[in-house]
Amino acid sequence: MKLSRRGALKRLLAGSAAVFLVPVSALAKWAEKAFNATKLDEAIKLLWPNAKLEKSDKVRLKAPEIAENGAVVPVTIGSDLPNVKSMAIFVEKNPSPLTSKFDLFKDAKPEFSLRIRMGETSKVIAAVETTDGKVYFTEKEVKVTIGGCGG
């Protein structure tokens, strides 16, 4: 049976598929300190103390250029890298830059779509940790505007 987007959503929300969506992070050790960090560098360091971040086009970040609503900005993080261990999204100018972290089971598809909250225009950073301990990232500016005056 081919599922329509609407049908799939309803099934997900009805809970039949929800069991697969429990964030793996909930099962792993809660990175409390990193989530509480107030600076981007600090959050990254607390999450991956020894890693040097390397920019990579194998990390995919889909986000709007201008947010329709800063309170719920839809983003998708994905990766074409092999052996992904974890993924994280940071919003540089948020009071707590680390918005989310996903620890992946082996063979899990490294792609997550979620909504993040943004207080103001900021760089959004998607980072991917591989099993060899390396961390790759990509970034995009997402504008949060007061709107109006379009003509």
Binding site: I66, K143, I146
Partner: peptide, 21 residues
């Protein structure tokens, strides 16, 4: 307000512009 609208008009990356004056 002025800064915000001005950036919507004059951001160097067109994808961050909204049109309008």
């Amino acid at each position: 307000i002025l800064e915000d609208v001005c950036d919507n008009l004059f951001n160097k990356d067109p994808y961050y512009q909204q049109g309008g004056d």
